[in-house]
Design a protein around this nucleic acid. Structure first.
Lengths: 188, 188
DNA sequence: GCGCACATGTAAATCGTTACATGATTCG
DNA sequence: CGAATCATGTAACGATTTACATGTGCGC
């Protein structure tokens, strides 16, 4: 599914598994997480399918690296995925499922703790995204509308993260205050 | 993972697999999708683990139903999941990954079509959520802050859907206009 | 010498999708 | 009588997680 395509997209520039994992944790984890073991296996499968090729290279630190690169076949797969329109209905958010069922605990104090924790986490995430934006804006005079095509599209996803996370922070804040009001009316 | 817990949450009230699938498509698909075949297998596994029990019952239409219900053991599992705080970092959104790599096509016309399609889909989704809210508000005088605990928490997730989707529509709209401006400067 | 970052993998189990298989009832 | 809805499942494959296994180089 998507992991395949994300790896193909990353590997338009050569990289090894370990470095891909780091890119994932920084950039892609906002919309798709992956473990190292899964990345290694998927790279092997994609190479067996002819979408990638690899070579071995020495490392400055630690053992040899296996450097992967996209092939013309892989590039076609990537373009097919991009051409067939948005993959919708693949979204997931498990903390929302938790909130949906939180009434089961029948303990508003616990609901409040849950939502406060979530709010803090969302604020932290928003802070990270704003820092990324601030740095980009200060270091690139073309930001945000005179970037090259690659960076322009990446900026659209950053903008989405900013817009969405800011909305979620507001929602979480409001939810915390609504739960607090219910608590005042029905004290423990 | 989460599917287990969502099924346990639903099965605090008795239901059969087919009916659960319908609930999924209406309510839960916004944050977690599941196919019928997966639901049936998961129900069997959860019953084998002692988290659910089932009985057979005749149907008005079609073959007998297998009605599942949560057990005390299953309820403990559900409560554990709710008590251990928000499951973060499990979010997924594959269309965002597509946008990130859309520069690969190097064709702003295609980027524009992609984002316009996404915008339309997000507007449609927002319309559905608003209709759900309008109906709930008109049929329940306690909406939204004097609902019972179950419904209050479900309303928090509806509110999140409304807030988030409205923000995404704005972002998509803005993105469409930013891409249009780039197109004007560099016509095909 | 210990722990951390670098670096790559395998094995087993579970999760999830797709395709296949079956059959009753209802509506047009 | 054909299609849609109701109803339950199996088989095969692919995706994902968790645990295990190995070894280098650097800083404290």
């Amino acid at each position: 599914m998507s992991l395949d395509h994300i790896l193909l997209g990353i590997l338009r520039k050569p990289a090894n598994g370990y470095a891909i994992k780091q890119a994932f944790d920084e950039v892609f984890s906002h919309f798709w997480a992956a473990k190292l073991s899964q990345i290694y296996r998927t790279l092997k499968r994609l190479e067996a399918q002819g979408a990638l090729i690899s070579r071995s290279a020495p490392s400055e630190k630690g053992p040899d690296k296996r450097i992967y690169n996209i092939t013309p076949k892989g590039r076609r797969q990537l373009r097919d995925w991009l051409t067939r329109g948005p993959d919708i209905g693949e979204e997931r958010c498990s903390y929302l499922a938790q909130i949906f069922f939180l009434g089961e605990l029948n303990d508003l104090q616990k609901s409040l703790e849950f939502m406060s924790g979530l709010e803090a986490e969302l604020r932290r995430k928003l802070g990270v995204l704003r820092a990324v934006e601030a740095y980009w804006r200060s270091s690139d005079p073309g930001y945000p509308d005179r970037l090259n095509p690659e960076d322009f599209h990446a900026q659209l996803t950053l903008q989405m993260g900013l817009t969405k996370t800011a909305a979620l922070v507001k929602w979480a804040e409001q939810s915390v205050s609504r739960i607090s009001k219910r608590l005042e009316k029905k004290p423990v």
